[in-house]
Amino acid sequence: MVAVTPVSERPDPPRVAWRRQMRERVLREAWTLAAQNGWDRVRIADLAERAEVSRPSIYKEFGDRAGVGQALVERETEHFLLGLAAVLGADRRSFYDALREGVAHALAEGRRNPFIRAVLMAARGGTDALLPFLTSRPDPVFSSARDLLTVWLAETVPGAAQQRRVEAADVAVRLTLSHMLLPGPGDADVPARVARATCAVLGVPGASAG
């Protein structure tokens, strides 16, 4: 009997695999250039040279420079949310500990990833370089993080009223993003402060919440 490899386990055709790799290389180089010099100075010619692909290939994949920017915003937002979800979903002794670690992760990502901070600033009028890529969702990091946290709170604190969970998610994300945009000398205590504030909105104990 001949074994049949499931479709999901079959390798991509060479053309599909090359396209995926090319797309990732271009976005990786776009991130590097934007982090170093700002999005205004990212050019298709530079991306083609650094990613070792032709300019026509980039135009065919992304349409134009704006298409690269849109794809990069979506990619970095997705990576940020996946990392946050992983931290929140890890085993912890309490809800408070998980939330505190989630805030700490978000702050660390804000320091590590200048592009995420640039997206946050663009959504708040800090720069117009990325504004054209935020038209479908003007504040993608904030709204997506709030949605993620609202769902997580429903699973983690099911006894809290729905409206309180929505308000708590909003408070937690707003406080966290404000510190990502305006870091201060006392940021080491921010995760605990945000977690306590969120617990207060939910009406559950602070460090002992579980």
Rank of each mutant, 00 (worst) to 15 (best):
S144H: 03
T5L: 15
P158D: 06
P205Q: 11
V4T: 15
M180K: 02
V68K: 08
V4L: 15
G203N: 07
A118M: 14
S57K: 04
D64Y: 00
T176S: 10
R146M: 11
G63P: 04
G83E: 14
E101W: 12
F95D: 14
C199E: 01
R65W: 02
V103K: 05
V73Q: 03
L177N: 01
E9F: 06
L134M: 12
V26N: 07
R28F: 03
E155Q: 10
L88H: 03
V7D: 09
G83L: 13
V73Y: 00
C199K: 00
N37K: 02
N37W: 01
H179L: 01
D97V: 12
Y96A: 05
M22G: 08
G184I: 12
A3G: 08
R165G: 09
F95I: 13
M22V: 11
A192E: 15
P140Q: 06
V141K: 01
A48K: 07
G184F: 13
R10W: 01
L148G: 06
R146Q: 13
E155W: 10
A195E: 07
A106M: 11
R117E: 03
A45F: 05
S94A: 09
Y96T: 05
G210H: 03
F142I: 03
D12A: 15
V87Y: 05
D147I: 04
L120D: 10
P140D: 05
G186K: 08
H105Q: 15
E74Q: 13
L107K: 15
A35C: 01
A129E: 07
D40Q: 14
R117I: 05
R124Y: 01
L177C: 00
V171H: 09
A30M: 09
V119Y: 13
A169C: 11
T176L: 07
A209V: 08
D128K: 03
V166E: 10
R193V: 14
G110V: 04
V16C: 00
F142A: 12
P205H: 11
G89P: 05
Q21E: 12
L27E: 09
A145V: 02
G38Y: 06
R165E: 10
R43F: 06
A207H: 12
R23M: 03
A188P: 00
F62N: 06
A51K: 10
A207Q: 12
E101T: 03
P6S: 11
L130Q: 06
R93K: 10
F142Q: 10
R196G: 04
P14K: 05
D128W: 01
R65T: 05
L120V: 07
L47T: 08
A200Y: 02
A123S: 10
G206M: 06
R41A: 04
Q70G: 09
N113R: 13
L181Q: 14
A86T: 11
E49V: 14
F115I: 05
